[in-house]
Design a protein around this nucleic acid. Structure first.
Length: 224
DNA sequence: GCATTAACCACAG
DNA sequence: CTGTGGTTAATGC
């Protein structure tokens, strides 16, 4: 198995692995492909793998006391489940594919082994976790302090700037999921979206979105 | 009080 | 699954 050695989607951490380490990784790594809607791992299930998303969009979500909450949208290449696999025995959240997704399951023991023997690998992982935590802090504050239209505007800009890198795209989420992501009811998401549409900020038909007035959308996102 | 915001319900495509 | 309208509760001016 030499899949990791020649993988073109290697993570910035894995770039610091030597040939023998990559070979070890290749032996313990399982490659799986998921279709849209497939569950990659499930909350409360036992977990002994770190997941590396080589390609695709994934939603990380958690069953809350009231309803489902989408914690983040992850785009490959990206690690998933480091916190929940190292910090606990069971998954504290679920991951579901939003598009066709290519995933590698990495055995936790190999992963820990690399961390304790390869400091550059470990450092990259820490950088990754830190950036993640900062992102969550921002999302947390925004979620709590912005009003609903601001949260929806922010999410639209997130998809345009971070995920698709274009102002015209197809939403990979239903209105319900968009509600779970922004902490809104699905009805409210519908209303806010059609308000944006009527005000000429976006052009929406079904799931296809075109952002027409980014500045104004940004103002709404920033000011609540 | 009155206006705004957002949740819940119901019903129609 | 979506979009809309009516209603209601909470909050701020």
């Amino acid at each position: 198995m030499e899949i990791c050695k020649f993988c073109s989607k290697r993570s910035s951490a894995a770039k610091h692995l030597g040939n023998d380490e990559l070979e070890k990784l290749g032996h313990s790594c399982v490659e799986v492909s998921f279709e849209k809607g497939d569950i990659i791992f499930k909350q409360n299930a036992l977990s002994s793998n770190i997941i590396y998303v080589r390609e695709g969009l994934v939603k990380i979500h958690m069953a809350g006391p009231e309803r489902e909450q989408i914690l983040k949208i992850a785009k490959g290449p990206s690690y998933l489940g480091i916190p929940t696999t190292i910090g606990d025995k069971v998954n504290n959240y679920s991951a579901t594919a939003l598009t066709k997704t290519e995933v590698c399951f990495i055995d936790i023991h190999i992963f820990k082994d690399f961390i304790s023997t390869n400091s550059e690998f470990a450092y990259e992982i820490i950088v990754n976790l830190c950036k993640n935590e900062l992102g969550h802090f921002h999302r947390c504050v925004n979620q709590l302090q912005k009003q609903s239209s601001g949260r929806v505007a922010e999410t639209l800009l997130f998809f345009a700037d971070e995920i698709f890198k274009t102002d015209t795209f197809d939403l990979p989420l239903s209105r319900h999921e968009l509600g779970d992501l922004t902490g809104n009811s699905r009805e409210n998401v519908s209303r806010i979206l059609s308000d944006f549409n009527n005000e000429g900020l976006i052009n929406i038909s079904g799931k296809s979105i075109q952002i027409l007035n980014k500045e104004k959308l940004f103002m709404i996102s920033r000011n609540g």
